[in-house]
Amino acid sequence: MNEYEGKFIVIEGLEGAGKSSAITLVRDYIEKHTGTKLVCTREPGGTPLAEKMRDLVKIADKTDPLCDEAECLLIYAARAQLIANVIKPALNNGKWVLGDRHNLSSLAYQGGGRGLGDLVDVISEATLKDFKPDLTLYLDIEPSLGLQRAASRGALDRIEQQKLDFFERARSRYLSIATEDESIHVIDASQAMTEVHKDIISALKAMPWLS
C-alpha cells in the first residue's frame, strides 16, 4: 500500500468491459464524498511524451510492425513518465488519483496475452519497485462479449484487433492475480450496467478511507 495522503484508485478490464462509464461513476462518487477534484490519468499516456508512446502502441504500421518486446518497453516507459511527472506528485500533495489502467494491464496483456511474463516482471520491478494502487476495480468479462461491445463502438485499434485467444490469456492472468491480491476487487461486467454500478459503489463503500 502507498504511504501517501492521497489515494490511487485504478479501473481495469478487457476491451468492452465498460471502463469509461465506471471511471465516470467512481470519479463522481469520490469527488462527492471527499469534496476534492480527482486527478484522472490513462495508460499508456497521461503526459505529452507518454501520449506519443501511446500512439506508437495503438496505431498499427504494416511497414514496420511493432514487436511484442518493443510494445512492452514502450508501455513501461510511458508508465514511468506518468508516475514520475503526474501520479506521485499528485499523491504527495494529498490529491486522489483515478487511473484508467495501470501495471495490472501489463501483467495481463503483455505478461499473459503476449507470453512475456519474465520480461514484464523484470521491468515492473525496475520501474515501480513497491509502488501500487490502493484499490483496483477489475471489470471482468468474457473476451468474446467484450470484443462484440468494443466493435460496436467503431474501428478497433491495434490492441483491440488481437485474436480471441490473446484476450483469453489476458483474462486468465487478470483473474489469477486478483485471487492473490486483496486490493483488487473483481466486478462482474457482464451484468446489466445498473448492477455493475451497484457492485462498484459497494466496493467503494467497503474502503475504510471512504466510509
Results as ranks from 00 to 15, higher is better:
residue 74 L to W: 04
residue 119 L to F: 08
residue 49 L to I: 15
residue 125 E to P: 01
residue 73 L to M: 14
residue 111 G to N: 08
residue 132 K to S: 13
residue 142 E to D: 14
residue 133 P to W: 04
residue 49 L to M: 13
residue 115 G to M: 11
residue 31 E to P: 15
residue 94 G to I: 05
residue 61 D to F: 04
residue 125 E to F: 04
residue 145 L to V: 15
residue 111 G to W: 14
residue 153 R to Q: 01
residue 86 V to F: 04
residue 40 C to S: 08
residue 57 V to H: 01
residue 146 G to H: 07
residue 96 W to Y: 08
residue 119 L to V: 14
residue 50 A to D: 05
residue 65 P to N: 02
residue 93 N to D: 12
residue 145 L to N: 03
residue 124 S to F: 02
residue 43 E to Q: 02
residue 124 S to Q: 11
residue 86 V to N: 03
residue 60 A to D: 02
residue 80 A to T: 10
residue 101 R to L: 05
residue 97 V to T: 00
residue 35 G to S: 09
residue 43 E to P: 05
residue 79 R to G: 04
residue 106 S to Q: 09
residue 132 K to I: 06
residue 65 P to R: 01
residue 66 L to A: 10
residue 102 H to T: 02
residue 46 G to Q: 09
residue 64 D to V: 11
residue 53 M to C: 09
residue 133 P to Q: 06
residue 148 Q to C: 09
residue 42 R to T: 14
residue 101 R to S: 09
residue 102 H to G: 01
residue 154 G to T: 02
residue 52 K to D: 01
residue 97 V to Q: 00
residue 54 R to G: 00
residue 146 G to Y: 03
residue 70 A to I: 12
residue 42 R to F: 10
residue 130 D to G: 06
residue 79 R to M: 06
residue 47 T to C: 08
residue 132 K to F: 07
residue 31 E to N: 10
residue 97 V to K: 04
residue 88 K to C: 10
residue 69 E to T: 12
residue 47 T to P: 03
residue 94 G to T: 09
residue 140 D to Q: 08
residue 32 K to I: 06
residue 70 A to K: 03
residue 117 G to H: 14
residue 150 A to W: 07
residue 65 P to D: 00
residue 79 R to E: 02
residue 52 K to S: 09
residue 50 A to T: 03
residue 63 T to V: 08
residue 44 P to T: 02
residue 57 V to T: 08
residue 95 K to R: 14
residue 85 N to R: 09
residue 77 A to F: 08
residue 30 I to K: 06
residue 80 A to F: 02
residue 55 D to Y: 05
residue 117 G to Y: 06
residue 45 G to E: 10
residue 36 T to A: 13
residue 110 Q to R: 07
residue 139 L to P: 11
residue 130 D to I: 09
residue 54 R to M: 00
residue 27 R to T: 13
residue 65 P to W: 00
residue 96 W to A: 01
residue 76 Y to G: 04
residue 118 D to H: 12
residue 36 T to E: 11
residue 34 T to R: 15
residue 70 A to Y: 09
residue 140 D to M: 05
residue 26 V to P: 10
residue 108 A to T: 03
residue 74 L to P: 07
residue 104 L to M: 15
residue 55 D to E: 15
residue 97 V to P: 01
residue 48 P to H: 14
residue 104 L to V: 03
residue 27 R to K: 15
residue 136 T to F: 09
residue 148 Q to D: 11
residue 157 D to R: 07
residue 82 L to Q: 04
residue 61 D to E: 08
residue 63 T to G: 09
residue 142 E to P: 12
residue 94 G to A: 03
residue 28 D to K: 15
residue 96 W to F: 13
residue 98 L to G: 01
residue 59 I to K: 00
residue 35 G to R: 15
